[in-house]
């Protein structure tokens, strides 16, 4: 018997996927900020913590592009090194609840019954508290510092990932391809990790891009309230707080880190939108 002919859609494979404009714009904004943070020593000429008390509160000049603060530290250096601190902490603070929440959600959704009930009631307990109240309480109890911030944010925000991923898992586990993998004799862990997780993780990724904006705001807020990364490590929140007392004479000291926060948030939001569009098209 001869080979039966088969037809398939080659054009689809050859079609270049167009990147959404939001993804490009967000990527560009964030790329510049992340680039500056990574290459901080190359784009600044002052140590961000070195004080020069003979040259305090100087306005912008050729030597100090954005002037100096009340301790004579270079504002541009502090801004760039602050990006380093804040973005790094935010990255860890989004990665950790992402991993924990996704795993909790996928196992709760897949196995259901007692495990599901336990995980989801725990999630209910966490969301019963307002976000900032719980984060500040935890940071206060653990003592200010990078580690405490990451732990506090993880404890609070794994819940969103778990809920999103659980919902997606409930849908995915009843799909025929899961039945097919069972019929082929796959182990449960392989089914969950290799076949369910890749199908549900994209929703968690999209959420992560908006969650990281919230996390940066939380980190900056904690810094502003004095619960953040301890001085003299540069941090946008601490910069805003300490510039506040000179608001009438040197408004730029508080405003410049504020603009940096807004730009970072904007870049991440655009990136998130673009990513959501890209991932939904691929379905």
């Amino acid at each position: 018997m001869t080979t039966v002919s088969a037809e398939y859609v080659v054009e689809k494979a050859q079609q270049r996927r167009k990147l959404p404009p939001a993804l490009i714009a967000g990527g560009a904004v964030l790329g510049v900020i992340v680039g500056l943070a990574i290459f901080a020593p190359l784009v600044t000429s002052y140590n961000p913590t070195t004080q020069d008390l003979t040259n305090i509160l100087a306005g912008p000049s050729a030597a100090h592009w954005l002037g100096t603060d009340q301790l004579g530290r270079d504002v541009w250096s502090r801004l760039v090194y602050g990006a380093r601190t804040d973005l790094f902490v935010a990255f860890i603070a989004v990665l950790s609840p992402f991993v924990i929440g996704t795993l909790a959600g996928v196992f709760a959704g897949y196995f259901g019954s007692a495990l599901d009930a336990t995980v989801m009631r725990l999630a209910d307990v966490v969301v019963a508290f307002p976000f900032y109240v719980l984060v500040m309480l935890l940071v206060f109890l653990l003592g200010p510092g990078t580690g405490s911030i990451i732990i506090a944010i993880t404890v609070v925000s794994w819940v969103s990932y778990a809920r999103i991923v659980r919902g997606a898992t409930l849908v995915a586990k009843n799909q025929e391809y899961v039945l097919a993998t069972k019929a082929e004799g796959f182990s449960t862990s392989r089914i969950v990790l290799r076949h369910i997780v890749p199908n549900v993780v994209s929703q968690a990724i999209v959420f992560a891009t908006s969650d990281i904006v919230l996390d940066i705001l939380a980190i900056v807020t904690l810094g502003y309230l004095g619960l953040g990364i301890p001085p003299p490590t540069p941090d946008w929140g601490e910069m805003m707080a300490s510039g506040q007392q000179f608001l009438t004479t040197h408004w730029e000291l508080s405003t410049i880190p504020g603009i940096a926060v807004v730009l970072t948030g904007l870049g991440l939001s655009l990136l998130g939108d673009g990513l959501a569009e890209l991932l939904s098209v691929e379905r």
């Binding site: 799909q175 025929e176 391809y177 039945l179 097919a180 993998t181 290799r194 076949h195 890749p198 199908n199 379905r283």
Partner: peptide
């Protein structure tokens, strides 16, 4: 249903 019986992301 071969559409749903294959994993869409693999």
């Amino acid at each position: 249903e071969p559409m749903t019986a294959l994993n869409p992301v693999v």
